[in-house]
């Protein structure tokens, strides 16, 4: 918790004292980078997410300059991560799924860092903002659908939006018109967008808010028990257990987002029936 957040917390506490407990308190959106918003109108969460992306690019660009067949340091760690992504893709998409490891790995790494950076004082998790998670979900589905188009061809891709329960094409056409199966499929695709973005946003926003509330609680307690003559803004680290929980949730949500992307890819590439089961299993695991 940093100066600005502390100030916000103190403000919130004072506000609460004035207007009762029903006041709306959420995680602060003002960070140390807020001056960029004042100067150029770029929101803090977007700045942070771009900076994280830039840091990743610089980190890996530097790593790629000194790669060796005998790895050391960061390369060892990253090789382990890449092997993990490859095995994740193999288990979700099947043999040959390794080629989608860059997508899954990029999502995992980027979202993990976006989730964790909120723990650094003076920053916020950009994934606690719905615009970021919606943007990421759109990117995920864009990639999934372009892979599907490339792998299946236009005809097979479009056939994914219709149901064919009968051997007769006419019967199938009638079935699709009556049951509005293509519309259901389209809604299903859109629901993927909602589920991806809202799950990530909700979890991280919730964690951030809880941390913020616990941090505020530390200061309120000091005041309420009259331990000091005047209420001062020295916090007790009430939020510490939640910080560990946040780290856990950051990993889990990054994993869920990226493995769901893998599952969506496999839904298109492998058969329909298996895919639905896998999606179901993945959703079960996510909740």
């Amino acid at each position: 918790m940093t100066g600005s957040e502390l100030a916000a917390a103190a403000h919130g506490a004072a506000h609460a004292a004035e207007h009762g407990a029903g006041v709306h308190v959420s995680a602060p959106e003002e960070t140390w980078l807020h001056f960029l918003y004042n100067l150029f109108g770029i929101p803090d969460w977007l700045t942070i997410s771009l900076l994280v992306g830039l840091a990743l690019v610089i980190l890996f660009w530097r790593m790629s300059k000194r790669l060796s067949l005998y790895p050391s340091g960061f390369q060892t760690l990253w090789e382990m991560a890449v092997e993990f992504f490859e095995s994740l893709c193999r288990s979700a998409i099947g043999p040959g799924g390794e080629k989608y490891a860059p997508i899954i790995g990029s999502f995992f790494t980027y979202i993990l860092l976006l989730n964790l950076i909120g723990l650094i004082p003076g920053f916020m998790s950009p994934t606690a903002h719905p615009y970021i998670t919606i943007g990421l979900a759109i990117a995920s589905l864009t990639i999934v659908h372009s892979i599907a188009l490339r792998e299946l061809g236009l005809k097979n891709y479009l056939l994914h939006y219709v149901d064919r329960p009968f051997p007769n094409p006419l019967l199938n056409a009638a079935f699709n018109i009556i049951t509005l199966a293509p519309v259901v499929h389209l809604v299903g695709e859109f629901s993927k967008l909602i589920s991806l973005s809202i799950r990530l946003f909700g979890n991280i926003f919730g964690e951030d808010t809880v941390i913020f509330q616990f941090a505020s609680l530390g200061m309120i307690t000091l005041h309420a028990f009259g331990l000091l003559p005047k209420p001062i803004t020295v916090p007790l680290p009430f939020q510490l257990p939640v910080v560990f929980l946040h780290v856990l949730v950051a990993f889990i949500q990054a994993f869920v987002f990226s493995s769901l992307t893998a599952v969506y890819i496999s839904l298109f590439i492998s058969g329909h029936e298996e895919g639905h089961e896998e999606e179901h299993a993945a959703h079960e695991a996510a909740h």
Binding site: V57, W61, S106
Partner: peptide, 16 residues
């Protein structure tokens, strides 16, 4: 954000 991620993905694929 979408475009930023797609660019990031392209760069990560190339470097990482």
């Amino acid at each position: 954000q979408t475009v930023a991620f797609l660019i990031l993905y392209w760069l990560l694929r190339k470097f990482a």
